[in-house]
């Protein structure tokens, strides 16, 4: 059971939710003092379950591929085809786009399933609301677009393409080059990771505010105020649907930006 679920069961909701709301207890309390502490929590369960769901679903859907696809095969193909056509091929063209489509589609589906834990009843927290997981994905994107750029152009030319925008007057370069370097080499993975992290973090906080707030109103002891908790819970449900939009949008945006960075590394001009 998670921390917040236990807290609710004890009838003691610490109302303004904060950073503490993201600390989850070990599932097996005997492990807390050993080296395996923090190994089995709701967060790690979400990550492993996301990986398992994706692998099992795609193996199962593609076990016997047919020319006229079955329902499950159609679902798998349209999930892959969506990213392949709207992100990879649109950005990079047919030839290179198809080369990168598998990575981009995997990235999209992995983030989508990871984010989806934020609204699954009983879990209701996304592993991506801990900075470590988005940061790892951001660094992975960074390694890929840097590697591809250096392989395509060589180190010096790639740095020139990335950091020196063409067409600017010479006297502005001392100002422009450090900014471009900072933005394109250093800050890209950070902003990628932080965008995903902050969205899931804020989404979890919003849900906590309305749901814990509802319990807080129920515990108030005044009948009129207790009646108001209905609105708080209704907002909680409404925000869950809003979360659904954010979940899909953030997975798409992360994939789109990764695709654009890869395309930028392959392109000849800035």
């Amino acid at each position: 059971m998670t921390d917040s679920a236990m807290v609710l069961a004890e009838g003691d909701s610490h109302f303004p939710p904060g950073i503490d709301s993201f600390n989850f207890a070990d599932w097996f309390s005997g492990l807390s003092d050993t080296a395996l502490t923090h190994m089995f929590t709701t967060i790690t369960f979400g990550v492993w379950a996301s990986v398992a769901v994706l692998i099992v679903f795609f193996l199962w859907a593609y076990r016997k591929p047919q020319i006229v696809p079955s329902k499950k095969q159609w679902l798998a193909e349209s999930a892959y085809g969506f990213i392949r056509n709207t992100v990879a091929i649109d950005l990079m063209g047919k030839k290179t786009g198809v080369r990168f489509a598998p990575y981009l589609a995997t990235l999209f589906l992995f983030i989508l399933v990871m984010n989806f834990w934020a609204i699954v009843p009983g879990i209701q927290v996304s592993p991506n609301s801990h900075i470590a997981f988005p940061l790892m994905l951001g660094v992975l994107s960074w390694v890929i677009y840097m590697f591809i750029g250096i392989k395509q152009h060589g180190f010096v030319k790639f740095m020139k393409i990335t950091c020196v925008p063409p067409g600017a007057p010479w006297f502005i370069y001392p100002l422009l080059v450090p900014i471009e370097f900072l933005q394109n080499i250093i800050l890209r993975p950070v902003t990628l990771a932080l965008r995903l992290f902050a969205n899931m973090f804020a989404g979890h906080l919003i849900l906590l505010v309305f749901i814990l707030g509802g319990f807080e109103l129920l515990n108030s002891g005044n009948l009129l105020i207790q009646g108001l908790s209905v609105f708080s819970f209704a907002m909680g449900i409404g925000m869950t649907f809003f979360e659904l939009i954010v979940i899909a949008l953030q997975a798409y945006v992360f994939t789109l930006l990764t695709g654009m960075y890869i395309q930028g590394s392959l392109a000849d001009e800035h």
């Binding site: 709207t86 992100v87 649109d90 902003t191 932080l194 965008r195 902050a198 969205n199 973090f201 804020a202 949008l249 798409y252 945006v253 789109l256 930006l257 654009m260």
Partner: peptide
């Protein structure tokens, strides 16, 4: 795609604040 990219680039500023 440009809409969503521009939206994401601007929205992240508010989230940095958060």
């Amino acid at each position: 795609p440009m809409l969503f990219m521009g939206f994401a680039l601007v929205e992240v500023l508010a989230l940095f604040g958060l």
